Lab assay of single mutants.
Amino acid sequence: MGFKLLSKLLVYLTASIMAIASPLAFSVDSSGEYPTVSEIPVGEVRLYQIADGVWSHIATQSFDGAVYPSNGLIVRDGDELLLIDTAWGAKNTAALLAEIEKQIGLPVTRAVSTHFHDDRVGGVDVLRAAGVATYASPSTRRLAEVEGNEIPTHSLEGLSSSGDAVRFGPVELFYPGAAHSTDNLIVYVPSASVLYGGCAIYELSRTSAGNVADADLAEWPTSIERIQQHYPEAQFVIPGHGLPGGLDLLKHTTNVVKAHTNRSVVE
């Protein structure tokens, strides 16, 4: 069995187990497998329904001669939608809004960016022009300005110390501490036991640490421990890039980060 097929099978099995364990909360999309990078042309966006009122959005972007996937989250909030992270750029984010209108038909009224990198804030200006209120932590807003990236308009308070959590509509926002970046936030959907790890969490097929220019490698494993301790009931975990899975993604990420750190020390 090929690795790609095995990865998709694991996603399907995880979703099936969740649907059985929580039949009222989960209505997993039966329309197909989780979209992969090879299936999404740059400039297009796919939506994948995880649970009743919960979707991931998947886009792709060219970077350094390669094409990478990027995940975000959409959560229903009454007759409105909360968006977590842009679709990595203005063109993708405009396509995301169009796809949401086509498939869901509810307005996106608020959006949260989970850290300051372009795959999370690139497209904020498109959201703002569409009347979406954009939010991020003060740290993310400051770092985005320093980096020359787009800056969300509103500040999220109460997320300055490791372990801080605040309720934001249908989700809980959690600051686990520094990891992929010093400002990275985690998003949890309690009604569906869905954990969105953003770039602080890796997919299972990833074996290298990737972009760690703004990471705190020493603190990252401790931050992941905080996530595990705060959300032990999480059933569906979405990484910032690639295929979702279960809580095993947290341990896998820790292993990859520690291996990278150990290699760096040896070198």
Rank of each mutant, 00 (worst) to 15 (best):
M1F: 05
G2A: 13
G2P: 08
K4Y: 02
K4P: 15
K4N: 03
L5F: 02
L9Y: 09
A15R: 11
S16R: 15
A19V: 09
A19K: 15
S22V: 06
P23A: 11
D29Q: 10
D29K: 09
Y34T: 14
Y34D: 06
V37W: 09
S38M: 13
P41C: 14
P41R: 07
G43D: 06
G43W: 08
V45W: 01
Y48F: 10
Q49E: 05
Q49D: 04
I50C: 13
A51Q: 07
G53M: 03
V54Y: 04
W55R: 02
W55L: 09
S56K: 09
S56E: 11
H57N: 02
I58D: 14
A59Q: 03
T60Q: 15
T60V: 11
F63N: 04
D64P: 13
D64W: 12
A66P: 10
A66L: 08
V67P: 06
Y68K: 14
Y68H: 14
P69H: 03
P69K: 03
S70P: 01
N71L: 03
G72E: 00
I74W: 00
V75E: 01
E80I: 15
E80D: 05
L81D: 00
L81H: 01
L81A: 10
I84T: 14
T86A: 10
A90H: 07
A90N: 12
N92T: 15
N92D: 08
A95Y: 10
L96T: 13
E99N: 03
Q103E: 08
Q103I: 04
V112Q: 01
V112P: 01
S113Q: 09
T114G: 04
H117T: 00
H117A: 00
D118Q: 12
R120E: 12
R120L: 01
V121I: 14
G122I: 02
G123C: 01
V124A: 08
R128L: 06
A129R: 09
G131E: 08
V132K: 07
V132N: 01
R141C: 13
R142A: 13
L143V: 11
E147T: 11
G148H: 03
N149F: 14
E150V: 06
H154V: 12
H154W: 09
L156I: 03
E157G: 12
G158D: 12
G158W: 08
G158H: 15
S162Y: 05
S162N: 12
A165Q: 10
V166E: 08
G169I: 02
P170I: 15
P170H: 13
L173Q: 01
F174C: 10
G177D: 00
H180A: 00
N184A: 14
I186S: 05
I186Q: 02
V189T: 06
L195K: 00
Y196S: 03
L204I: 13
T207D: 14
S208L: 10
S208W: 04
G210E: 08
G210P: 07
N211M: 12
A218S: 10
A218T: 09
W220Y: 15
T222D: 10
T222L: 14
E225P: 02
E225L: 13
I227S: 04
I227D: 00
Y231S: 04
P239N: 08
G240K: 01
H241W: 01
G242A: 02
L243C: 03
P244S: 12
G245M: 08
L249M: 03
L250N: 03
H260C: 10
H260A: 06
R263L: 08
V265C: 08
E267W: 13
